[in-house]
């Protein structure tokens, strides 16, 4: 079973890596921030799998913290770092 968990965790890590391509190419800043949120959800899943695979129930607390803090960066982006529309397209040209 542990091998299965670790294999699945590797698969999810590949998903994570694929999400990075969206950050690289994403036309608008919103796309980039989306990918960052994808990372949060996938990381929680990976952590739950690792908690089972490595036999350390304490890792669930780590995924709890991830779940709680996933929102902080997205809200920080939306409320602060999202520049007004005019500038946005210019810098991505």
């Amino acid at each position: 079973m542990t091998a299965f968990y670790l294999g699945l965790a590797s698969f999810l890590l590949l998903n994570l890596a694929a999400g990075m391509w969206r950050i690289l190419r994403g036309p608008s800043e919103a796309d980039r921030m989306l990918a960052a949120q994808l990372f949060g959800t996938t990381a929680v899943a990976i952590l739950l799998l690792l908690a089972e695979a490595m036999g350390q129930p304490a890792l669930r607390d780590v995924s709890l913290v991830f779940a709680l803090l996933a929102a902080v960066t997205v809200v920080a982006f939306v409320r602060r770092a999202w520049r007004p529309a005019t500038e946005e397209h210019s810098n991505d040209a």
């Binding site: 960052a36 949060g40 990381a43 990976i46 890792l59 780590v62």
Partner: peptide, 19 residues
């Protein structure tokens, strides 16, 4: 901005490394 978003992802993967 792209660097900062990558940095957030870097922090997440770093936490996985610590696990």
């Amino acid at each position: 901005f792209k660097s900062i978003v990558f940095f957030i992802a870097f922090g997440l993967v770093m936490a996985l490394a610590w696990v």
